[in-house]
Write a protein that binds this DNA or RNA. Structure first.
Lengths: 223, 223
DNA sequence: TTCATAAACTGACTAACGGTCAATAGTTAA
DNA sequence: TTAACTATTGACCGTTAGTCAGTTTATGAA
């Protein structure tokens, strides 16, 4: 009588199918323009059925955000598992972030959507929102671990609080990859074209300055 | 017969009144939740009249974005006019940016909205969008000027391209102030609380690392 | 196999919103 | 006073998120 378990599995599977359909429609029509009717049709379900799995369109979109943050976290975890100096791991995480935005811009778009939500009640009641928040916190922890490693191996200035430093890097690189996202998603209106600077070069400078600024070498100079 | 001119002035004034009303409603109801009906009522006009001044709700929101970018640019311009080293000016610009987000979060929200627009045609046809883009480019130029000054006065590493460096700083600080905005606008769900780090401290670290990383001192070390 | 119960699903319906436009009011200049 | 023009109105439309009474399908006991 494993019916109960199977039901639960199938239910979860259906939800994933709906998220698949949503991603597909969004890729075709755009994040804002996608409608629940289209998503339902793509998932071969009625619109009403969508609401049996997600309480609202916003929650469905948070499910996409969750997928994205899962993937990004996996990438960070992989970097942390590698044999590299702390500083090198931070650089690699930055590269992963940039690559992620380039190859899965939809997920980054979903991150932005998540951040733009102001409805507290919704955020509090949605399990998806909670998981997204958890992942966000997790990503920060991965960075913090890499920084701690760097402080141990002597590649990173150990006078900083690792968590605070992680937050600085997490936030500032968010701004950098947002610019990369903009260039990627709307290449014809962007600041970048006017200025004729490419993302790789800019990202290189960012990493260089960051590395310079927080390296243990930099500390020695000040002492 | 200065009627024509007066008409034009009054028309412009009306448009400003509508933007005022929109800001008021958004502050009360939120950026997404504000409706054109409410804005019209607040402006003591019918909804139809709004569309005589703005082609769409999106364009009205871009008018808000334009106001915000005007203000931010004024602040940057003021910093550039001060007697400070290049490095000091960059720091001051960062502080202005942070202060701007704290005191005028609505405008920062409008910036995010502007960046999220994907409809090219709309962006191309809207005069407001063009002005916003111009301002964005202008802000970057202000930063670039401060950096050039710093390269001259010896406070900033002169091996970087000023414009590229400006873009790095502009983008990364956007990420930092976005975090500040999040903390300000939704203090009860944010990463920051879990981690117990306050924005001022984090911003201080950001500026320190940035300064370290791009200072001429840092260059000497590498040579 | 039959049947009662429950779970999954449907699609017509509602409410709310952005946007339109024919009709109206107000202004200008002769 | 009037004709032309401009500004404004608000009822109306199409679209979309979300609902729910009713239908189909799966389950497990008799």
């Amino acid at each position: 009588m494993g019916t109960e378990k199977r039901r639960s599995r199938e239910k979860a599977r259906r939800a994933e199918t709906i998220v698949d359909a949503a991603e597909k429609v969004i890729l075709e029509k755009g994040f804002e323009a996608a409608t629940m009717d289209e998503i339902a049709e793509s998932a071969e379900l009625s619109k009403g059925a969508l609401y049996l799995y997600f309480r609202s369109k916003a929650e469905l979109y948070l499910a996409i955000c969750l997928r994205g943050s899962n993937e990004l976290n996996s990438r960070f975890a992989a970097v942390l598992a590698s044999r590299n100096s702390g500083l090198e791991m931070i650089r690699k995480m930055g590269e992963e972030y940039l690559d992620f935005v380039k190859n899965k811009p939809l997920y980054f778009r979903a991150f932005s959507y998540y951040e733009s939500i102001q409805d507290f009640e919704f955020l509090q009641e949605s399990g998806y929102a909670e998981l997204c928040e958890k992942n966000s916190s997790q990503a920060l922890t991965y960075m913090s671990r890499a920084l701690q490693a760097g402080m141990q191996d002597g590649t990173i200035d150990n006078r900083y609080d690792p968590m605070e430093l992680a937050l600085v890097i997490w936030s500032s690189s968010r701004g950098i990859v947002q610019m990369a996202f903009l260039k990627h998603s709307s290449p014809h209106r962007n600041i970048l074209n006017e200025v004729e600077i490419d993302i790789q070069s800019m990202f290189g400078s960012y990493i260089e300055i960051l590395s310079n600024g927080m390296s243990a070498e930099s500390k020695k100079r000040i002492d």
